[in-house]
Design a binder for these strands. Structure first.
Lengths: 221, 221
DNA sequence: GCATTGTAAACTGTTAACAAATGCATGCAG
DNA sequence: CTGCATGCATTTGTTAACAGTTTACAATGC
């Protein structure tokens, strides 16, 4: 019999995860004012516990503080989308570069191939496709072996998810086609840093462009 | 008579700043266990207020949580120093690239020149030199106009400061000579992205190497 | 009507107290 | 002396309550 080390989960962390998924799933729309008393009651915890969770989300960039400390769900404007994806590109290029330098490059590439397979498998399922896409890119950062790089990327994941929700899932999905990622992995497997950089930057630029266009047509309609 | 809108400062933010400077100044050594009751008493605030500040420092990467939620000042090992400076390099390269694309490039360069002048002015003063060095690089990110880039860089600033303190101020100062930054700015002024990238990456690699050596000799001695 | 002043409701900032868990020390039995 | 159990001290998790501020709205006076 296998004894799983059972994890003690604090209420604070449960609030954190609950709130995060509520925000990144669009359940709490951008700009929405989070009232502590409402939320603490909804989660069934005290305000103090909830506030600690909110402080973290604030720093994660999912919440922004108003004049009197009121926290609202962050709104992402077009300019920030561009910035966001430029930084993502820079980080993932570094990840890819680092990956190339590892002795067991082929093994690590194999892990990425599995992520890609999953992306293929869930094609069409809205929610799953987002997860698989982000998972692919997150795995790239993990495989780099650079822990600082990974945590920097993770700090971007929240805002990225908010952007996707804000721009509309259907539109965002265009960025997550498995074919685009097939290309990415193919280039990656050539282990040519300069080439990878070019393609990755292009990949991110395209993604940002589409998301920005989605938001334009949204506000226009 | 002029009435200035007076700024309200919360105890939480004061704790945050106080704790952060205590850590980054080395007053609280790496690995030190922070006891909530001690600190709250020292600051003269309640535990709840202090805890909110600590949650932010935790996410800033200045504190790490132990098994039972005990928070300790983060210890940075050699490997992480390398990772840290690789990510810094990637971000600052992006900043420099963005800078080059701005129409008012010369104006922004001038701001950087002022930062450099300050670095020259405080040469020899330990504490001031660290501030001036970080200020130079931070300004580079600000001038990029990319807010996401800036906040990613700021998330790295804490750990960088801890590293500097951990490696020893005197050793770290070798990285902050004004001459090295003279060179950086000179290359920057040529507005050649590829060249800048090469020099910036080299700049960061050297810095990381020295800090890592400093830690080696430290642990050996 | 319009401006000003009370007034109440809604929230956040902050605190103090209670509960649970962990680690340590004391003391006892073998 | 070893091993173990018990109780105590320490520390974090969590809660409820209090205090101060802002906002909206009604009341008052001109």
């Amino acid at each position: 019999m296998s004894i799983k080390s059972l994890q003690r989960t604090t209420l604070r962390d449960q609030c954190l995860n609950g709130l995060r998924s509520a925000i990144t799933s669009g359940q709490l729309p951008a700009g929405h004012h989070l009232v502590e008393t409402e939320l603490s009651e909804a989660f069934g915890v005290s305000r103090g516990t909830l506030r600690e969770a909110m402080r973290r989300l604030e720093q994660e960039g999912l919440l922004v503080a108003g004049p009197r400390g009121q926290l609202r769900v962050r709104e992402i404007n077009e300019g920030e989308i561009g910035h966001l994806y430029q930084v993502r590109a820079a980080l993932e290029v570094l990840a890819a570069r680092s990956l190339c330098q590892h002795a067991d490059f082929p093994d690590r590439l194999e892990t990425l191939r599995e992520c890609l397979a999953r992306l293929h498998a869930v094609e069409g399922n809205l929610g799953e496709q987002i997860e698989a896409d982000l998972s692919f890119h997150r795995t790239l950062c993990e495989l780099s072996g650079n822990s600082v790089l990974l945590s920097s990327w993770l700090a971007l994941e929240g805002p990225v998810r908010v952007t996707i929700m804000h721009a509309g899932i259907e539109r965002a999905l265009n960025n997550m086609s498995s074919s685009r990622h097939d290309h990415l992995l193919e280039v990656l497997s050539q282990r040519d840093p300069a080439h990878i950089e070019r393609v990755l930057v292009e990949h991110m630029d395209e993604a940002a462009q589409r998301l920005m266009q989605a938001m334009e047509t949204q506000s226009a309609g």
